[in-house]
Write a protein that binds this DNA or RNA. Sequence first.
DNA 1: ATTTAGTGTGTATTTTTTACACAGTGCAAA
DNA 2: TTTGCACTGTGTAAAAAATACACACTAAAT
Lengths: 244, 244
Amino acid sequence: MSKIIPNISIDCVIFGFDFKQLNVLLVERKLIDKDSKQVLIDDWTLVGYHIYEDEDMDTAAARILRKISGIEDIYLEQFYTFGDENRIKNEKDKLWHKHHNKHFKSRVVTVGYYSLIDNTKVKLSLSDRNVKWFAIDDLPELGFDHKKILDKALDSLRDKLRNQPIGFELLPEKFTISQMQRLYEEILGTRFDRRNFRKKVLQMKYIIPLDEKQTGVKHKAAQLFAFSREVYEKTKTERFDFTI
Amino acid sequence: MSKIIPNISIDCVIFGFDFKQLNVLLVERKLIDKDSKQVLIDDWTLVGYHIYEDEDMDTAAARILRKISGIEDIYLEQFYTFGDENRIKNEKDKLWHKHHNKHFKSRVVTVGYYSLIDNTKVKLSLSDRNVKWFAIDDLPELGFDHKKILDKALDSLRDKLRNQPIGFELLPEKFTISQMQRLYEEILGTRFDRRNFRKKVLQMKYIIPLDEKQTGVKHKAAQLFAFSREVYEKTKTERFDFTI
DNA sequence: ATTTAGTGTGTATTTTTTACACAGTGCAAA
DNA sequence: TTTGCACTGTGTAAAAAATACACACTAAAT
């Protein structure tokens, strides 16, 4: 395989939804001194990696996501590029780089992607490192400038969620209206009236009612719906507009 | 001064508005064979340049814009990064590179910015190359993948224009309501009812009516208004929403 | 049989959006 | 000095969309 490009990286903010909260997938960053056994670094980072010289950025991002999640077609969106001259400046980050990128010390520009994945499908695997979901409002300490990157990703996600039908990427194929409502409430940080929400959603032609009900719940089972991209493309008006 | 980073560039889509149309500033790309005097390349490109190793991307973008336009504080927005492995692939582009970047032949990732500038203030200057405004719907042939970059910039601009008060960056400090209307119509490609537009704008508290009138027009002079960012920041609701 | 935790439904009120026409001003040209 | 031109400035009624709001029903678990 060909060489990586040393000064360009990709950082991927992987969002998932467990019907309760919005979550982000993070990778543990741990560094232990060989001799003293002292823990020098123990925090978390986004999923980041370099691209190969003969590889498109989108392709690279998709490749890694496939590897981590086991899912083929993942929704992926480039949202911002971070290239400040001193973006990696604190001691831990320098230390980490010293141990890993010994050969390269100039600035690294990183292109931010976020991806939306259906939590019910994912099977985590990232061999050697510890990988974990964290609730968006209960994050651990993040390394590098990844807090800043994550915040920007969240902003872009919220923006997009209001104007395009991307919420369904975070839901299973069949979902109930209140699962959808909770998703919008959690991400946008708002609360909607249940009846009005339902009314609005039901007049979207591309939300297809199914002849099926939820199973495995200990209360009245709700009807399931599916999102149809074909119908959406045919019937979409100028913009989605999720005001409510 | 320090060295440039060879594989990262910035391309800037500079928008201006002349009260009639949305325009883009382009630079002529001309290559003439020394011996045969044959014109090998003659087309146009966005304003592009490299960044220095010790310079932030935003700073670099602002620096160049200042140089070209003579204006200090220019509205600048990063909108997308283009890094396809084969983004520069056609013959003219390769030829151009051969003549200019002889020393470097790997892929260049370019970070796209767009800037909005008040046409009435600008004084063009880019020493050695020919620089010109083009109407957005009457563009010449563009070099590299700059048509794609421009299109993406336009999309982002439209998006932002609907949700944030950035249109004023393209207008002089004092403007009339119908200048503002034409701006929105041109960029969004819509047409608004004059009375409803005015009604909507007048209920925005941050559009301040001035005690002044337009001059130099050969019809009834219209009242002038100004945008107040302070009032906007104080009174803004969740989002701007330019639906009409 | 009761509790629990959710589903499913309709209407009236308010707000926002839309559609639409005519008189007035100021300059320029005859 | 008159007339034409090109634009400014103004209000109302009708339609559509958003909001507020409460009760009966279901299925499982105890």
